[in-house]
Design a protein around this nucleic acid. Structure first.
Length: 258
DNA sequence: ATGGCCCCATTATGGGGA
């Protein structure tokens, strides 16, 4: 069994102890990280290696930044740029091969405030992702798109949907973009496993959101048809959100047959 | 209606997050 996880760490150096403790306790084989908030030369490779993981990463000063960690199999980097916009300098994408899977680790733009250029950038980024994801399907190998999509796909994924009507994470255009991506041949793994369950992966630091369980489901695993039949289980390591110095996201994970 | 929390960069505030 292979355990694949995603964790928006919200500052990899500021929360390195949280990451290392969770790696130790959860023991995932593959980890997609987002919001490193560190330039590439500040990536804590030694600590990650000492924990038993190889890594590839795409950092950026102050913001964004993504990485994939793997143990028990080498990681081969495929690309670190999402095709379609040479002017885009955000580090939001890295694609690798490890454990004989293609893993695309992504951090989709937040898009707030709506309306505005940030929202336009989000929709453009989503279109680029959909185009590239469609190209990935042509290879007919097991592929997963994993990360912080900054989208609550349905009302079931929001503690109070009416509060988020005008929010860039819940705008109709964004939910439609997510649905259109799935329609091309991707399955939302956690939703497939739990069609009716309230699952959250994010709780805001503000307004005691964690204590009130006022959460959002933002972190997703999209599996292609080659990988989906191997899906066994999935969940969220919710307790991590309650740790000292926690990220505002909790790690989510799936297991697949090796 | 507003701001509240927390990161980073820089060093008392500002940008960004969701």
């Amino acid at each position: 069994m292979l355990k694949i996880a995603t964790f928006n760490i919200n500052g990899i150096n500021g929360r390195l102890n949280v990451l290392l403790r969770w790696l130790q306790e959860a023991g995932p084989d593959i980890v997609c990280l987002q919001e490193l908030k560190a330039p590439s030369d500040k990536f804590p490779l030694k600590a990650i290696n000492d924990a038993g993981y190889e890594a590839v990463w795409n950092g950026q000063k102050s913001w964004n930044g993504v990485a994939v960690l793997s143990k028990g199999s080498p990681i081969q980097e495929v690309r670190r740029i999402l095709p379609g916009d040479p002017a885009d300098e955000h580090s939001r994408y890295i694609e690798v091969i490890t454990h004989q899977l293609v893993i695309a680790c992504l951090y989709l733009p937040n898009g707030n405030p709506y309306p505005g250029p940030k929202f336009d950038y989000k929709l453009k980024w989503f279109k680029r992702l959909t185009r590239h994801a469609t190209a990935l399907l042509k290879h007919e190998v097991p592929v997963a798109l994993i990360g912080d999509f900054n989208v609550m796909p349905t009302e079931l994924d929001v503690y109070k949907p009416e509060k988020y009507i005008g929010n860039a994470l819940f705008r109709t255009e964004v939910r439609e973009a997510y649905a259109a991506l799935l329609k091309k041949g991707w399955t939302d793994a956690l939703r497939k496993l739990y069609p009716d369950k309230r699952i959250y992966t994010f709780w805001d630091y503000l307004r005691h959101a964690w204590e009130r369980d006022a959460g959002l489901r933002l972190d997703h695993f999209l599996l292609n048809e080659e990988l989906l039949p191997r899906l066994k289980s999935g969940g969220v390591d919710k307790a991590v959100r309650g740790w000292e110095k926690a990220s505002d996201h909790a790690p989510a994970w799936i297991t697949i047959k090796s």
